[in-house]
Each structure stands twice: as C-alpha cells, then as structure tokens.
Design a protein around this nucleic acid. Structure first.
Lengths: 148, 148
DNA sequence: CTGAGATGGCAACAATATAACAACTCGGCC
DNA sequence: GGCCGAGTTGTTATATTGTTGCCATCTCAG
C-alpha cells in the first residue's frame, strides 16, 4: 500500500491484516489526531468527539488511544501528555520527535544513527530495551527564522 | 570539587557560585531524591517530607523541584512523572536514562554518540534543540539475568 | 439464533500539577 | 538595631491528566 493512500484507509487495512477491529470510536480518534497539525491531549480529543449533543466520557478516548498506541497507529508525546497520529504505521519503528514549543508542531523522524547509537549505549550496560522515548524540545526552522 | 564529595555539599557550592539559595526545603527535596535508589513522584517526596506533624502542600514540593530542575540538580523522568537526583550537576549536560520496569532502577548515562546523532538529526531539519528527553524503558542487566 | 468475547457508556475516583494570594525570611543598608 | 525589598514559603482551592469497576450493548462465529 503506497504512502500516498489516505492514512485512515491504510490503518483500516493494517487492522484487517492483524485481525483486529478499527471500530468507529477508534477511527474517530485517529481521524481527529491526523487532522490536527499538532499533538492533542486526551481531553482535547474528547472535546472534539463531542461535536453534537453526545455525551462522552474519558474512558472511551483512553481505550481508543490504548488500542491505537498498541498497534502503532498513534504515538504519545510524553513531555506534553499528548498524542499524534503516526505517519507510517505499516511496520513497527522507533521514532524521535522534534517539538517546537513556539508553534506547537511536532515532527516525527526516524533517524537510523540515533536508533543505533541508543541501542549500543543500552547494550553497553547490558540493558534490554523495549520502549524508547526520544523527544527534542526547541524551535523549528520556520519559527527560528520568523523570530530571529 | 571532586566527584567523591557528597552530592549535597557539591550542590551547596554550585548554588553559592551561581548566587542562588539552596534553601531548607530545596535541600530536603534534593536529599530525599539522592537517598532514593529510584525515581520518586512529587507526592512521594511530599510524603517523605511530612515526617512529623508538619502539614505540607504540593506547591512547596513542585517549587523546590522547579528550582532544582532549573539548576540541573535533578532530572525529570517524563515517562514516569517522577524525579531523580543528578549524579554530576557540575556542568550542564544532556543525559539519557535507562529505566528498568522490573526493579524500578534508573541509570543516568551521558553517551556522546547519542547526543551527537540526535544533534545532527535535529540540524538536518533546521531545528534548534533546547531540551532533550531520552528515556529507554526495558530490563536492566541484573533483572534480565534473574528472570531469564 | 444464541452465547462468548469484544466494545462502549457511565460514575466515581486517583494521580499529577498549577493558580492566586497572604505571610514570612533573609540579606543589605541606613 | 530597624527597615526595605526581593525572593521564598504557606495555604486553599482548583485544574488537568489518567484509571477503575460495573454493567449494558453490540458483533460475529458456530
């Protein structure tokens, strides 16, 4: 499935391949995250989902997020308590995030050198890595240019 | 000041050099963190500080933590919402953390290759890095050996 | 069509963090 | 000593983020 295909469609087929269900709530959460150009907190997602008169409680969002996280369709930005949709959920990967504290945009990168050096550093200590949290907070190119 | 000197004493002289005060509350928080072999949440620190009948509220702890973080005397483990004392607060540095989810021990490392590759990755995007959050969650050597 | 398992709604709660403002402490200065 | 002002702390209340438990509902294979 080519990168150009809509993320939701790709997510759909990923779930189908894995025999799990991309239910309405899960798809809505994913859609909201993908439509946003910045990470959203769980309660922001909740708010976005309550478009009509529908009352909706936190567990619904958190359960959907748990599912999406487990299947690599979204990532959690630990330093912000927020979530972003993943660009390339096809295969498991460890990404790094560049977080602009000025405009709020988060860029997901997957730098081989970072992954590799982090792996070696862990190996040296005999550490068996399972999950990696790599977040760089600073100023993105656009904002740096704008503000000097 | 040699590494062997007590952390609190070193912290004291660092603050003196910078013309800031390592007050009683700040020193207490730092002492509690340094005495612990694992990261402590803000409310655990609060609990530890309420040894006698003293009533003490969250802001006191958070303010002390803000100060200690600002001066690099402690680090925050974002993925745990917890704090650890810093091993070598003398000079500013960007460290990485190996977090064992089995025994809870957190090891602070300062790997040049990681720092460098992360720097290059940011540079490529024209990103101006200010703060780095690098946390690897997994199993430490001791626990890996123990549990197969 | 039926029953097991997955999913969702709901209410209460737990954990983490901050706002706002009053009171105090300490060092410098007259 | 006495006083000032900046920084620090106390106190109350509240915001934000995340979780648990329980039961109703839906889905889908057999």
């Amino acid at each position: 499935m080519p990168m150009s295909t809509d993320v939701l469609t790709r997510a759909e087929s990923i779930c189908q391949q894995r025999g799990v269900r991309l239910t309405t709530q899960r798809r809505r959460v994913l859609a909201i995250l993908c439509a946003s150009n910045r990470p959203l907190g769980a309660y922001e997602i909740l708010e976005a989902m309550r478009d009509g008169a529908r009352t909706l409680a936190p567990p619904t969002v958190y359960r959907a997020l748990d599912f999406l996280l487990e299947h690599g369709l979204v990532h959690k930005i630990e330093s912000m308590h927020a979530f972003v949709g993943c660009n390339h959920p096809e295969h498991p990967h460890s990404s790094q995030f560049l977080i602009c504290h000025d405009c709020g945009v988060v860029t997901e990168i997957d730098d081989a050198a970072v992954t590799q050096s982090l792996g070696s550093a862990a190996d040296v200590s005999g550490f068996r890595a399972q999950r990696r949290v790599v977040e760089v907070i600073g100023t993105c190119a656009q904002c740096a240019e704008k503000n000097g």
